[in-house]
């Protein structure tokens, strides 16, 4: 059986309905474990004190903010190339989730920055890029809502997503060029020597897994809603013709 069969709305509804409770449960367990462990059972950082604990929200949210856009890009390409409706609706469903993660990353960053950098906001390249990313999300969502015909909206937002991705990367480099910045480097990488210390590492990884599962849960849920909405408008349109 081909993977593309899951792009059929009926098949998708069956499969996602079966998978959803498990992913939601996984998200709840991982988020619960990771956040409680991180907040209450890790030592203070020797320089940052207890403010370091915000990384259990900040880092996963920031990672998912970018990954959500990447997922939308892939879904948009699938829609443009293979015209699978579920793919376009999944991209539509992911956008508000991605925007929320972006805002969480910005808000937790500001909360951390106030005591540590002495300011709520700094025009640092990473912060600025995330602000720009939030604007891209806003534009994408607004275009979805403005275009009446759902297939045309899917076409146009897919193109916007592709062009937007190129310009988002360009903006990232332009902003780097414009200001060198305060933000520390990546907290996690596959290269062990650059990682944060082991006490913080495991709860952070569990939190990240929780955020990924939360993202999948929300996108599945919202895609199911979008599919039902389309089914409803298809029924209404048929009714009107008959």
């Amino acid at each position: 059986m081909s993977l593309w069969e899951y792009a059929n709305p009926k098949k998708f509804m069956q499969t996602s309905g079966a998978v959803l409770p498990w992913v939601a449960g996984l998200a709840a367990i991982c988020l619960g474990t990771g956040l409680i462990w991180g907040f209450f059972f890790t030592p203070d950082d020797y320089r940052q004190g207890s403010t370091v604990r915000i990384i259990y929200l900040h880092v996963p949210a920031a990672m998912m903010a970018i990954n959500a856009w990447a997922m939308m890009l892939v879904a948009s390409l699938i829609w443009l190339i293979r015209r699978h409706h579920v793919s376009a609706l999944a991209a539509r469903a992911a956008a508000p989730v991605g925007l929320t993660f972006t805002l969480i990353a910005l808000a937790t960053g500001a909360l951390w920055g106030a005591p540590m950098w002495g300011t709520w906001w700094e025009w640092d390249p990473r912060l600025t890029s995330f602000l720009i990313l939030a604007l891209f999300y806003l534009g994408y969502i607004a275009l979805w809502q403005a275009v009446e015909n759902p297939d045309t909206a899917a076409d146009l937002t897919s193109i916007l997503c592709m062009v937007g991705s190129v310009f988002a990367v360009l903006s990232r480099y332009a902003v780097n060029f414009w200001n060198q910045g305060l933000h520390q480097g990546a907290s996690l990488s596959l290269d062990q020597r650059e990682n944060i210390s082991n006490v913080f590492w495991l709860p952070l990884v569990i939190s990240i897994a929780g955020f990924v599962a939360l993202f999948v849960t929300l996108v599945l849920l919202r895609t199911r809603t979008e599919i039902r909405a389309r089914r409803l408008s298809a029924l209404i349109a048929r009714e009107r013709l008959a």
């Binding site: 709305p9 009926k10 509804m13 069956q14 409706h85 599919i227 089914r231 409803l232 408008s233 298809a234």
Partner: peptide, 16 residues
């Protein structure tokens, strides 16, 4: 039939 003309099997059960 368009992609959304097919029911999902649970239409009649009041799943909406």
């Amino acid at each position: 039939a368009t992609a959304f003309d097919g029911g999902f099997g649970d239409d009649a059960a009041g799943a909406f």
